[in-house]
């Protein structure tokens, strides 16, 4: 079971309940819901919000690839995975990403949840522009795209 979405913050906010509902099943004994939120400082600068930019088609493609790899590389076959990522401006404390996983046992749930977020950081075309209290803003530097076929 897999669902992945990019949600425009002007239209719809990320909600943990959506994730709980999707992964809920008596097939699984362990579930983990990870959420990332906008924090108030970065690199000694006071942050008041972040704009997320996404290449929607490539992001969804990367989420799909990461999900499939979890079966092949991690050998976690029975699972439910839910990924929501925000785009647009988010205020402090708002949720930018939810990764919810459900597996038979806790070991595989922890491995899967960590694997997904680390791969997203490396491979999904998502960019952050931080907005500071002095009214300046900056795109965060990031890392060159690592592609599975490179």
């Amino acid at each position: 079971m897999f669902q992945a979405r990019i949600l425009d913050s002007k239209i719809r906010k990320l909600i943990i309940k959506d994730a709980e509902k999707f992964i809920s099943s008596s097939d699984f004994g362990a579930s983990i819901i990870f959420s990332g939120t906008v924090r108030n400082s970065n690199n000694n600068k006071l942050v008041k919000g972040i704009t997320y930019d996404t290449h929607d088609a490539l992001v969804i493609k990367s989420f799909d690839e990461i999900y499939k790899e979890a079966s092949e590389k991690l050998k976690i076959l029975n699972k439910a995975v839910f990924i929501d990522h925000a785009k647009g401006f988010l205020d402090l404390g708002e949720i930018s990403i939810i990764i919810a996983v459900a597996c038979k046992h806790r070991d595989e749930a922890y491995i899967l949840s960590r694997y997904i977020i680390e791969e997203i950081k490396k491979r999904s075309p998502i960019w952050k522009k931080e907005h500071y209290h002095n009214d300046e803003s900056d795109w965060l530097k990031g890392n060159p795209l690592v592609h599975e076929n490179n």
Binding site: G36, Y52, T54, H55, L58, H85, S96, I97, I117, I120, K121, K122, R123, S124, P125, I126, W127, K128, W139, L140, K141, G142, N143, P144, L145
Partner: peptide, 10 residues
């Protein structure tokens, strides 16, 4: 085509 600058989301 699309330019994909260094990434850093999540």
């Amino acid at each position: 085509i699309a330019i994909i600058p260094p990434i850093g989301g999540g």
